[in-house]
Design a protein around this nucleic acid. Structure first.
Lengths: 343, 343
DNA sequence: CTGTTAGCGCATTCAA
DNA sequence: TTGAATGCGCTAACAG
């Protein structure tokens, strides 16, 4: 089907035309007679010729490629964004170069950036969760890059292009829902405090419970590590400190799952004794026991937004224009299931 | 930090050497004096030069890139393999071009292949689950490609290079475990019958129950679609047909989760009335209620194996040698939790 | 140890 | 509508 080592010259020779004519056919340009076009296309097919992207990019000075830097494939929020990115990039005709980082190691990141720039990617999508621990370092490095950059899920600044879920709104909606259901004292198991997303969800919760007149709010907060065990431990800690807690907003579904188990072991019925709302709406959430109320985030759409953004940036750059930095928000949606609804 | 449009010529001019010398420094070749090397490196740093990969690849005739074709980011087995691929590729110095397919659409796949070949990837990792519905078509297309190809999770053939989990062994181990626990009649909720992995897990189960002397084995089989709802429905169907079933082997954890819920609703206690073993060991499995016994597959390792394989193939091809097609098996491991252990 | 020459495969001038 | 010349940025082969 496709052979290699066959170049535009071979096609030209066999078709009895010049290489430029073949090039024109390849690029669907109009100034070729229908006749010639057909003949060239036949030769291309029969020879199994496929154009060499390197030569083309070198000559054109463009790569038509996007670099994506993701955060492992462990967290639902992270990897499902990648699906959206891949799909949208494909739709817009961009190829993708994928790099994954597991921990935030400066040397590794620097290598990745170097590699991406060497590959002349036309844009970079930074889909690594914002973490204050690496924020400064990152800001500094990334700000020096000429290549358009599109961030996923970090806070707004006045110099960056960001697509983000409105995590604060999510925290608010989840907490409000619990309060509306009649729960009196709503605690929170938050994610690592250095994560922007965790901070925002926490801020949303805080806003609502303060408005509800809670006092001693800080004692209602426990920090987890996103995984089920930390949700388990988290609930224990929370109840030790505040036996009167009757509901919790948990910053992601995996921790909520751990909390669900902890509650069961403690003899607390969900939702009667303890209401729970998670965050993410992972595919399993509807089948937890009891089924988990949670904040759904359309991560695929978020990924698509980031690609749209970078695409616009690239267009602008090609046209010599400049775009105003800004942030596009995506709204999460409350999915009510059994874990938060008292009869 | 990194600027563009700066070429090897600029570096050469500023450093007062020829481009060739710069090239030597870039490629860490030994035949450069320490003095010159240092000077050139300094210039490179100060200019923020980064080599143009296209020019390099075009000149070298090599891309140092691997193409990976994955199957969406929905199934744990699929996407976690990608993590292993990424990590190992990085370790070996390969870049990655990622393509994801959601459904098996020939035109889409053909486009991807065309693109990968245009990018002159040196090897392709086919991490799409083998499905008899697309098998012939795929075989035909892929067999015509000159580029080395490494398959993940498909059956052995005498012409392909494959890395696969021993799914049949997994089915056997899971089923044997249930029988050892004293369950008398072990049914199965299998994955879509067109999937190789589902077939193999089923075959492992079948082997064991036949050996155990079961009759009317086919009535103990129900087919699901990998997702929780189908596990739910599956258990109902199974019990309708065979009220005496007291255990099930479920072909993945998500369906097992659905079955767990169905059992609960039917008033069946797990593990007392119904033993359950899943497959995959997704991160949530230990926190299901009850915690789920399952077959753990080291998907990261599987991905790494595929990269090692393709790397070997590429080396061989460069050296003009030929490798014998074969299959590397990875063994799954039984993780015993509560869902399958009667007191 | 270093420089010169040539060419990788294609697209972009410009002519015809 | 087509073709000839030129260069993209780099490295391989050869000199020196």
């Amino acid at each position: 089907m496709f052979r290699e080592k066959i170049t535009i010259k071979d096609v030209a020779r066999v078709a009895g035309v010049s290489t430029q004519t073949v090039s024109r056919v390849l690029n669907n340009r109009s100034d070729v007679s229908a006749d010639t076009r057909t003949r060239v296309q036949e030769v291309i097919a029969s020879l199994g010729y496929s154009p060499n992207v390197f030569a083309r990019n070198l000559s054109r000075g463009r790569s038509n490629t996007l670099g994506v830097i993701g955060y492992g494939l462990v967290y639902y929020g992270s990897y499902s964004v990648l699906a959206g990115v891949e799909s949208k990039a494909n739709e817009l005709g961009f190829s993708l170069t994928l790099s994954l980082i597991d921990s935030f190691e400066p040397a590794r990141v620097e290598n990745i950036l170097y590699d991406l720039l060497s590959r002349r990617v036309e844009g970079i999508i930074w889909a690594v969760p914002a973490d204050v621990n690496n924020f400064d370092w990152m800001e500094e490095k990334l700000s020096k890059i000429q290549t358009p950059l599109s961030y996923v899920n970090k806070g707004p600044t006045d110099s960056d292009f960001v697509s983000a879920l409105d995590n604060r709104l999510g925290g608010k909606l989840a907490t409000e829902h619990l309060i509306e259901q009649g729960y009196q004292r709503v605690g929170i198991i938050t994610g690592p405090s250095s994560w922007w997303e965790a901070q925002e969800r926490l801020a949303g919760w805080r806003e609502v419970v303060l408005k509800a007149g809670y006092s001693d709010v800080d004692s209602l907060i426990v920090e987890g590590g996103w995984d089920p065990p930390s949700g388990d431990v988290g609930l224990h800690t929370l109840l030790d400190r505040n036996p009167d807690i009757d509901a919790i907003f948990v910053s992601n579904d995996q921790m909520a799952l751990g909390a669900l188990q902890a509650a069961r072991r403690l003899g607390l019925r969900t939702p009667e004794d303890l209401g729970i709302v998670g965050f993410d709406d992972i595919p399993e959430a509807a089948y937890f026991y009891p089924s988990l109320s949670t904040m759904r985030q359309d991560t695929r759409k978020l990924g698509a937004m980031a690609v749209d953004r970078i695409s616009a940036l690239i267009q602008a750059q090609r046209a010599g224009e400049t775009l105003e930095p800004d942030i596009s928000w995506l709204e999460p949606r409350l999915i009510v299931r059994k874990s938060s609804v008292r009869k």
